[in-house]
Amino acid sequence: MIRIRGLRKHLGTRQVLDGVDLDIAAGETVVVMGRSGTGKSVLLKHIIGLMKPDAGSIEVEGQEIVGMGERELDAVRRRFGMLFQSAALFDSLTVGENVGVGLREHQRLPEPEVRRRVAERLEWVGLSGVEAMKPGSLSGGMRKRVGLARAIAMDPQYILYDEPTTGLDPIMADAIDGLIRGMQQRLSVTSVVVTHDMTSAYKVADRMAMLHDGKIVFTGTPDEVRATTHPMVRQFVAGSSTGPIRPL
């Protein structure tokens, strides 16, 4: 369970997060939606301790992570996997080394076991036999899938997805959505997905939350989102430039 209360963060002169309150229950997939630049990725980076808030609280299984030192945070981070928007694969390593980097650094497993786990995770994301390839030679969709294989390599309890379908064609986006649902069923993980892709959001979400002006302005199930009369949510879901959310 992740519990966020009153999270505030300013970057430069802009108040990006202005009192975010959000609960993510164990085993559920919560999609945080909102316009580009509303602070969705900033929120994710706070959950895993990559950014420090100006104020507020983030509890992971009852453990307050705001104010923790790097060493304590590392213990929390080992329970997480994160898929970055750009996949953030290490260019100097092969695909196999990318997926196995956490296993080699933390788990001190015998090399054959590391290779077996790497091959297994790559197979789960539909990329068997690409261990020797370099990230530079992969397509956008393949990079995301390798990033996902790396995120799940250490059997995390939580997976954070930062814009998992951005920049992908609709067929590949659907495949990634399938993988996100598949991971939840296979590993029983708790997932937080930030996206502005509503097609993807409806497919993967158990619950959806809308971030606007630094606050969560709405939470509900996908059916509740479809049925809501909340003007901001309706405008966002409809993709309309007229309404309470100003386009510029």
């Binding site: 990559l50 981070r77 994160m82 970055f84 953030a88 290490f90 260019d91 980097v101 650094e105 933390h106």
Partner: peptide, 25 residues
């Protein structure tokens, strides 16, 4: 240039997210 590119492409964040200290690695 190498570490700067890693920083702007979130590779350093990816290391930290995996509990691998970038200074150590």
């Amino acid at each position: 240039a190498e570490l700067g590119t890693m920083k702007v492409t979130e590779q350093i964040d990816a290391l930290r997210a995996m509990a691998i200290h970038p200074v150590r690695y």
